[in-house]
């Protein structure tokens, strides 16, 4: 087990390094950047440009630039062009809301994706399976911004329910429970929209592995014992198909964090996604580098956790 953890940690460190280099290159290697005003703008004096180059270490060779940026990022010297605050703290203040949204979305994706996937595998080849597949692709093909708008319009116009932000302002809630419910509601709607695609791909993925598991000898044994079909499916087959379910967390996260740019923007939800969109609009390069890096690092962390979780669930992994 400990050898497995050490190997997995070493891999994570290597990947983190590659990720930091990719994030660095995105901004540094592109022509015209990282000047927020463009290289040839005549209104900007040579002095301002020189200061800017010095501030972001652009006068140094690339490897040094990389080292400086990474150093600055963690020491708080990498500051936003917009408000000159350290980018890391700008990101960190958005982190709780982002984690809440993405965690909820993952929970929805995994639970309903599992149900749909098992349902499809159980009825493989029959109309229930075909309908299930169709519904899954329906969800994947739904443009996130479109369905967000439709839901937002529907809720606001038809039901008069406020949904923007993390809570309703200007309302005096009679008690803490009502206020909590209001917050939950504000979290749940964007989370559901965000989760649709992941739910669907999770169900497709799980269906495929469930079909593999259902062909195994131990499933025949389970049936021969007289176990109910639900027990055979959810206990014996699902537990052996859990790898995609757990690694699904790692696969869902990049899509979710990316997708939350659109969803958070529409629902005015104050997470990392909206911060990213604001940074894009303001050409706030330090924030963009840091956001890409932090998001990728979060995904990497998610992968590491899911692998460790899997090693706990399936004892055979330790032997691999």
């Amino acid at each position: 087990m400990s050898a497995f953890i050490i190997r997995r940690l070493a891999l994570t460190v290597v990947l983190l390094f590659i990720i930091s280099i990719i994030s660095f290159f995105i901004v540094t290697l592109t022509p015209g950047s990282p000047y927020p005003w463009g290289e040839l703008n005549p209104k900007i004096s040579a002095e301002v440009k020189a200061n800017f180059r010095k501030k972001f270490h652009l006068d140094r060779p690339l490897p040094e630039q990389y080292a400086f940026i990474m150093h600055d990022l963690f020491t708080g010297n990498l500051r936003s062009i917009k408000d000159d605050r350290p980018v890391l703290s700008r990101i960190m203040e958005r982190l709780p809301a982002t984690l809440a949204l993405n965690f909820t979305a993952i929970l929805i994706s995994l639970s309903f994706g599992t149900l749909l996937g098992v349902y499809a595998a159980r009825h493989a080849g029959h109309w229930q399976d075909i309908t299930g597949s169709f519904v899954a692709f329906l969800f994947i093909a739904l443009p996130g911004f479109w369905i967000s708008y439709l839901i937002a319009i529907g809720l606001v116009k038809v039901f008069g329910v406020p949904i923007l932000g993390t809570q309703s302002y200007g309302i005096d809630f009679p008690n803490a429970a009502a206020a909590g419910l209001d917050r939950l509601w504000h979290l749940l709607i964007p989370a559901i929209v965000l989760a649709l695609g992941g739910l669907a791909s999770q169900s497709r993925y799980l269906r495929a592995t469930m079909m593999e598991s259902l062909r195994e000898d131990y499933i025949r044994t389970a049936r021969s014992k007289g176990l109910a079909e639900d027990v055979v499916l959810y206990k014996h087959a699902l537990r052996n198909s859990i790898r995609p379910l757990i690694s699904g967390i790692g696969m869902l996260l990049p899509a979710l964090l990316g997708g939350s740019v659109v969803v958070e923007t529409i629902f005015a939800y104050p997470g990392m996604g909206r911060l990213g969109y604001e940074a894009v609009l303001e050409r706030d390069y330090p924030t963009l580098v840091a956001l890409n890096f932090v998001a990728a690092a979060l995904v990497l962390l998610g992968n590491l956790l899911s692998d460790l979780l899997y090693a706990v669930v399936d004892k055979r992994v330790r032997l691999e």
């Binding site: 000898d217 044994t221 049936r223 014992k225 007289g226 079909e229 052996n240 399936d314 055979r316």
Partner: peptide, 28 residues
């Protein structure tokens, strides 16, 4: 019926199979 069949399976008629290594569920 399926319910009746499940009472027979295991309870009245039990099985052992050729390949014990794959016939037991590896994760339980």
């Amino acid at each position: 019926s399926d319910a009746e069949l499940r009472r027979v399976r295991g309870g009245k008629i039990a099985y052992i199979f050729q390949e014990p290594s794959t016939s037991l569920n590896p994760v339980y």
